[in-house]
């Protein structure tokens, strides 16, 4: 069974980067797809990759991750969004590589493809349109 767990921004409010990453990886190791409100800092993404590499073994093969941000071309509005909302804008999807085949992304949508025993017919697709 495929489980998607939504993590609101409020759950991360009082956590430092290390705790945040520990929480995400804990959920992913339970074979859940995690949907985080907002996006991680770039340095946190790098740390997430490092921590992932440390725990890879024969069972846990790593993660798939993608985040998407609202496309705001107006520089002032973008600045205002960042000032008011910070990392809360957008959404980040993180899933175990054993479950998630790939996450395809373009500026306006994310498509998450899961593995279902190699059968193309049963391939599930989750689409998020902005």
């Amino acid at each position: 069974m495929l489980t998607i767990q939504y993590v609101p921004h409020s759950e991360f409010l009082n956590l430092d980067s290390t705790s945040k990453i520990k929480k995400i990886l804990g959920l992913v190791k339970e074979e859940k797809i995690v949907m985080v409100e907002g996006k991680l800092k770039k340095t946190e993404e790098a740390e997430l990759i490092q921590r992932t590499m440390e725990i890879i073994d024969q069972k846990f093969k790593g993660i798939e991750i993608a985040s998407i941000d609202p496309q705001e071309t107006n520089a002032f509005k973008k600045f205002l969004f960042n000032m008011l909302l910070g990392d809360r804008t957008g959404v980040t999807l993180i899933g175990p590589a054993s479950v998630v085949k790939s996450i395809k992304k373009d500026p306006n949508k994310i498509q998450l493809f899961t593995k279902t025993g190699g059968s193309k017919k049963n391939k599930r697709k989750t689409k998020k349109k902005k």
Binding site: K41, K42, E45, I65, A66, I103, K104, K105, D106, P107
Partner: peptide
């Protein structure tokens, strides 16, 4: 658009 590419470039910017 893979996240690895975005993470690398973002970390260099940061």
């Amino acid at each position: 658009y893979s996240q690895v590419n975005i993470t690398i470039v973002g970390n260099l910017q940061a």
